[in-house]
């Protein structure tokens, strides 16, 4: 017990130190590096709290993918000749912002400590209805059945983010190929990994979606794995990004939210919009999860690739 307590205390201390370093660091790159480490430590913290689903999502999206987006933005800034942080807010404003953040953190901590013991929140209600949700993993039951509209809106937010990135495209390359051309020796080590890892990644991703109905896993985690596989394939120079005007690509982008909305509409016919009909819950939820996985993977990969830069 003491060893676990020591570990948790050390982890909390590390999280605080790394968070402070990410915010207070001088260089942009250092701040990004600390932000990624912060994401990994938070994933560890979620593991300690037995929130494996959240830990997976935090490690894959919070640390991995967001880190990659930030590094991409940093390298763009560097190409534009912006090397350091701009002047930024004045010192009094920073102190005020820090004080407000500290107060919010203290208030949150006080609230958590003030919660009565043995209170389980909504988990008894979830456990009670789990049998009717079509899946055995309570997290998946909440995300895709009880509060399906939250997840639907999340998947739409991702799509809107990509549209925002694409809207920065100059007219000359509108609908063109995202990102810069990648070169790698076709007999090189990277090409070998680019051929060796994708099948493994595909299996892991399908397993993650399938396992999501009874164990930790799901569309967001699997989608991130698929996106990473695609990024590796592109960076190894095996395939190029598809042009943004490609019809198949756009179908893949809207497949997840589309299937989700269609199921929601069927639910409306049975009485409640976004209500999953009880007898068909498992096949419906799995269809949504697989369609969402494809859309999330494509959206995340294209977010990393950035706006179109070359004519189709």
């Amino acid at each position: 017990m003491t060893a676990a307590l020591l570990f948790d205390a050390g982890l909390c201390l590390l999280v605080l130190v790394v968070a402070f370093s990410a915010v207070a660091g001088r260089g942009l790159f250092g701040a990004i590096a600390f932000f990624i480490i912060y994401g990994m430590l938070i994933a560890l913290a979620w593991l300690r709290l037995e929130g494996v689903d959240v830990a997976l999502a935090e490690a894959a999206i919070g640390a991995g993918l967001t880190g990659m987006l930030l590094i991409g933005a940093w390298s763009m800034l560097k190409q534009l000749g912006v090397s350091g942080l701009p002047g930024g807010p004045s010192v009094p404003l920073r102190i005020a912002a820090g004080a407000v953040s500290g107060l919010v953190a203290l208030a949150l901590a006080a609230t958590v400590l003030a919660l009565p013991d043995g209170r389980e929140g909504l988990s008894p209600a979830v456990a009670e209805s789990l049998g009717r949700s079509g899946v055995d993993n309570p997290v998946t039951a909440v995300l895709l059945n009880f509060r399906a509209y939250d997840t639907l809106l999340e998947s739409v937010v991702l799509l809107i983010a990509l549209i925002a990135v694409w809207s920065l495209t100059p007219r000359a390359v509108w609908g063109g190929v995202p990102g810069l051309a990648q070169h790698a020796r076709s007999d090189g080590v990277l090409s070998m990994f680019g051929r060796l890892l994708p099948p493994l990644g595909l299996v892991v991703a399908i397993y993650l979606v399938w396992a999501g109905s009874s164990q930790p896993g799901g569309a967001f985690q699997a989608g991130t794995v698929l996106a990473a596989v695609w990024l590796l394939v592109v960076m190894a120079g095996l395939y190029d990004e598809p042009p943004a005007s490609s019809r198949n690509l756009r179908l893949a982008l809207v497949a997840g939210p589309g299937v989700f909305l269609a199921v929601g509409a069927v639910g409306a016919a049975f009485g409640v919009f976004m209500g999953i009909p009880e007898g068909f819950a498992k096949p419906l939820i799995l269809s949504i999860e697989f369609a969402l996985t494809v859309s999330i993977a494509v959206t995340l990969a294209l977010l990393v690739a950035g706006r179109p830069r070359r004519p189709a």
Binding site: V189, F193, L197, L200, M235
Partner: peptide, 13 residues
């Protein structure tokens, strides 16, 4: 094995 392969790919990149 997977961590090793991933590390090797990242090292190449």
């Amino acid at each position: 094995m997977l961590a090793g392969l991933a590390a090797a790919s990242v090292a190449q990149l």
